[in-house]
Amino acid sequence: MDMFSGIGGFREGLRRAGGFECAGHCEQDEHAERSYRALFDTRGEWFCDDIRKADAGSMPDFELLCGGFPCQSFSIAGSRHGFADPRGTLFFELARVAEARKPQYLLFENVPGLLNHDGGRTFAAILDTLDGLGYGVEWQVLNSKDFDVPQSRRRVYIVGYLDARCAGKILPFRETNDAAPAALRDGAQGSWVYDPAGVSCTLSASCGGFGGRTGLYDVSGGVPIKEATKKGYKMAYPGDSIDLAYPRMNTRRGRVGRQTAHTLTTDATQGTLEPRPVRTPLVSSPERNPSRTGKPGAPMFTLTTKDRHGVLLGKRIRRLTPRECLRLQGWRDDRIDRVLAIQSDNQVYKQAGNGVTVTVVEAIGRRLADVHNELEAMDKA
């Protein structure tokens, strides 16, 4: 059951993991809901536009309850009002559904600020609530850059289960990706390939306009010239994009199965200049305020709803395209095409920033499915 579904990041990740079938979803934003229905066949499924109005008794049977409950009230970038904010109380709507239907598993996502909000009392209340419903609970802060996308996006994932034999088998993930950028393939400028440590800033829902000027990526097979030169991207070179279609290869740290993307780089006509990440470039020039400018080749500053970000290359700064933002959330181009065909750029920026990273959900889903199948086999033996 896909609650606070957005455009369907949970559903897409579990679909890729295999063995999951969605029983229904809930989403209040009409634009996100339009994208969801363009991405998935929802005919005959249960639906509700407001979880507060959801009749748990009318829901079909389901074994996994998913939800990225609204995070603005817990985010460092937000007001951090927590449960005092009406959005913060929506967690208890998930708990209400869980109490009524008793699914075997829970999978929730939120910002890391949830853990220390109000001195930890907010998270303690969440744990106490789930414990009272009979769930064992484990949680971990995972970074999307460790799951085959070049975006630094730290989120806390909460897993609940009714069967104590699940303990320690879904979380934690122990491998992290903290290495400095290292070249895997050198050569002419613009053809270098780096390991996934060359990451972008964290996407947020308000990354449209100047707030979305967050990167310059030069890779093969990028966005079409028509898309790259449309209004808002006129400073992008034809072919600029993020492309995760490179063959999987071993990194110098011995990992297998990491997809790679080009690091921030320059067009051949720009010589050997290296791009530099810039925070709030409109406030003051990078030259006069060096603390707002990273070193050449450094990762992007984390994108928030208040700061504005860009990439300095000589005098050029350009924003990420909507396609790139969805790629950074793990969506593949054939799926992205369906969203771009029906949504404005601003809506796509919002939907990408509000979403969950598909590849992270896929990895958790694979583990959850393995554990579930293992327990079923044990019970039948």
Rank of each mutant, 00 (worst) to 15 (best):
P322R: 10
D49A: 12
P247D: 14
V137L: 06
S204K: 12
G160T: 07
P247A: 05
A180I: 00
A180P: 04
A164G: 08
I242R: 02
V256T: 11
R318Q: 09
G78M: 05
Q140N: 01
V219T: 10
G190T: 08
G314L: 12
R279Y: 09
R255C: 01
A125S: 14
E63K: 03
S291L: 04
L368C: 00
G330H: 06
K295R: 14
Q259G: 05
L244I: 09
H372Q: 02
T122L: 05
V97E: 10
D41T: 01
G232Q: 01
P277G: 03
T357G: 01
C325Y: 03
C22P: 05
D240C: 03
R185N: 02
L203E: 11
T129H: 11
G198W: 10
N346W: 01
G365C: 02
P224V: 07
A381V: 11
Q329V: 12
R338G: 06
G68T: 07
K102F: 05
P181M: 07
Y161I: 03
G198Q: 12
T302Q: 15
G222F: 08
E227M: 08
D118M: 07
C26L: 10
L312M: 14
R323E: 00
H25V: 00
E274D: 07
F210W: 13
F62I: 11
D49L: 00
D128E: 13
L127Q: 12
H117M: 07
F83K: 15
D118G: 01
Y161D: 11
F91K: 03
V361G: 08
A17L: 06
V141C: 10
A298K: 09
F83V: 14
I317W: 04
Y349T: 03
G113Q: 10
V360Q: 08
G134P: 13
C48Q: 08
P224I: 03
P172A: 00
R34M: 11
I225L: 13
Y194C: 08
R213N: 09
K234F: 06
T269P: 00
L171S: 05
R279M: 06
E30I: 04
A167I: 00
G44Y: 11
V358G: 06
D218H: 12
G254C: 02
D163A: 03
G208P: 00
R253Q: 10
L90Q: 08
V371N: 03
L312Q: 15
P290A: 10
L114Q: 12
W46L: 09
P275D: 03
S73F: 02
E175V: 13
N373C: 01
A84C: 11
S58I: 03
P70R: 12
M3T: 05
A77M: 15
I242K: 02
A164C: 03
R16A: 06
R367V: 11
F83Y: 15
